[in-house]
């Protein structure tokens, strides 16, 4: 039996979570859509792929997004820690390119607790830290029933959870109402 999605999905506040998989950025965008206030997105400046604000606009108003271009991961972690501790941004998204250790993860967790803001690390597969509150894997799915061009079916898999059970759900983003809908998985 699948556990209750709502018990773990709006991510627990004042904690640092992790997400991996091909749809990690859209998972972050979904989280940002519910955040009240500015969202800080920290990324390393050498990355070739850029965020497209027009692609973000179905999720939330790109005007509330701040981007910090950092030199390397150390700088990114420092900025994330500062922003989480400050508490004036409810969500800090950090793109990670190298594995982070327990110390760094714990520091992020402590500063999130101090500032009462939520952190989300976009990690490559298997590079998370044990200090994360929860770890998700987000992947797009082909949806044979939706209209062409506006399918947003995804599978969110909870692969680590410090306070609850694991699970896997199919979800769909509704652009008009800006809400995430849970979809019952079709028989496989």
């Amino acid at each position: 039996m699948t556990p209750d999605f709502t018990s773990s999905f709006p991510l627990r506040a004042a904690r640092v979570h992790e997400v991996c998989g091909p749809s990690a950025a859209s998972f972050a965008a979904v989280c940002a859509s519910t955040a009240q206030g500015t969202v800080l997105w920290i990324r390393e400046h050498w990355r070739p792929e850029g965020l497209n604000p027009l692609g973000l606009s179905p999720f939330f108003d790109p005007a509330k997004l701040l981007i910090a271009q950092v030199k390397d991961q150390t700088e990114g972690l420092a900025v994330a820690e500062e922003a989480l501790r400050d508490g004036s941004v409810p969500l800090v998204v950090l793109e990670i390119s190298q594995p982070i250790g327990l110390i760094q993860g714990r520091r992020l967790q402590l500063s999130a607790k101090t500032g009462k803001s939520t952190g989300l690390c976009l990690i490559p597969d298997g590079m998370g830290s044990n200090a994360a509150e929860s770890r998700w894997r987000a992947a797009p799915l082909f949806d044979p029933f939706s209209a062409a061009g506006d399918s947003t079916l995804q599978r969110y898999e909870l692969i680590k959870n410090k306070s609850g059970t694991l699970g896997s759900w199919h979800v769909r983003w509704d652009t008009a109402s800006r809400r995430l809908h849970l979809v019952s998985a079709t028989g496989e």
Binding site: L65, A68, K71, E75, A83
Partner: peptide
């Protein structure tokens, strides 16, 4: 007062990574 706090945060991050590296679309 929230806006002030955010500006202070931008300043603090800016002293670390350079003020022009905190960007918006």
């Amino acid at each position: 007062g929230h806006k002030d706090q955010l500006d202070d945060l931008i300043t603090r991050i800016g002293t670390r990574i350079g003020l022009e590296n905190v960007q918006r679309f």
